[in-house]
Design a protein around this nucleic acid. Structure first.
Lengths: 190, 190
DNA sequence: AAGAACTTTCAGAAACTTCTGAAGGTTCAA
DNA sequence: TTGAACCTTCAGAAGTTTCTGAAAGTTCTT
């Protein structure tokens, strides 16, 4: 057993760190990222000072390769920053600490991309259905796809306002059930 | 090639259905469920009338087993209902159409469970750190874990109010950066 | 009570994701 | 210019999730 592992194994500080890192890892995984991203960010956040990559590998018992990949991805999401220290050979990394900035960044990049792709496909589906309209049962299906589409439009609008104001109002969702087509055509007219 | 597949392959209705089902499947996957759950729900939603399991298997080219598992899980989440039709041997299934009811149900069950588990672990981590407090660098780590904890508490509160009112106010997140300890102790005092 | 129609369960197969370890880069000091 | 320290990349290994196909279970009809 290497000296480092022995030292860490009995340290309650280290135990606390792992406990917190894993808890936040679960949240992050729940939001569709890899658990390690949450764990690495948390170690940096708790350290409250920039750490070198090797120190993260050691604390989380992961390979240098995995640490490097995690740090690269975290930087792409803008939640970890690389810092240079005068006189030091290696790079150091520190966690973004502004929760709101992290949340809004992720929402803006990730959710919007998906919402756009989904909207496009639903629009195409609605078009196909309308072109092939024949039977009476068909009408109801066109209505349903329109309703899905208006749901995505409302969700996109809610996201935009969320990112701008930190507030969301999901009341419009209620109307989607009873007045789906009105809601949709209002959107399309502008 | 079976007759059913031939019939479906050239039908633009079917193409539209698959397109929409897959788009919604992507959203659902993004929210941490299996893609098939979204696809099955969408087929039922678009059909606008109850369908038998075999019909879903056929439209989505999946085995009877997979369809059965997906329908069971969708019912557990309360977004698909089983309906009985007089004179019919088999069961039929229909989609819940109230988007708001679906969203709030999932949030209530899923997010709350996770938030509670995470809160517990962070509390334990904070306790461990406080017990072993020695060095001065330590103090900062305790602060950081407290800040994570207050983040989870604020998120839980925001969720509760979201489910009740359909509105969320994330403004409190802004304060977590600058006044983490005040926010936390206020929570703990009640 | 037997059999047909349908559904559920589950072991193993297939598909997908993530990690490790090693090779190859890059940077810096001497 | 060389070598030490560090970082990145990537092929294959390991781990995880999801699906299939078959068997067992249930319900209904006769």
């Amino acid at each position: 057993m290497p000296a480092a592992a022995t030292r860490l194994a009995e340290d309650p500080r280290h135990e606390a760190e792992l406990l917190a890192a894993d808890a936040i890892g679960d949240i992050i995984e729940h939001w569709g990222f890899r658990k390690v991203l949450g764990r690495v960010w948390t170690v940096l956040f708790i350290a409250a000072e920039p750490l070198p990559a090797a120190s993260i590998s050691e604390r989380l018992s992961m390979s240098a390769g995995a640490t490097s990949m995690a740090l690269t991805e975290l930087q792409r999401w803008g939640v970890v920053k690389r810092v240079w220290r005068p006189g030091e050979r290696k790079e150091f990394y520190e966690a973004e600490t502004d929760f709101w900035r992290m949340i809004s960044k992720v929402f803006d990049e990730r959710e919007r991309l998906l919402a756009e792709s989904v909207r496009g496909r639903l629009e195409r589906a609605a078009q196909l259905l309308r072109e092939s309209e024949k039977s009476p049962g068909q009408k109801a299906s066109v209505d349903r796809v329109d309703r899905l589409l208006s749901f995505v439009l409302v969700a996109e609008a809610a996201l935009d306002s969320f990112i701008k104001s930190r507030q969301v109002d999901f009341s419009p969702f209620g109307n989607l059930v009873n007045f789906p087509l009105r809601a949709l055509s209002r959107k399309k007219e502008r």
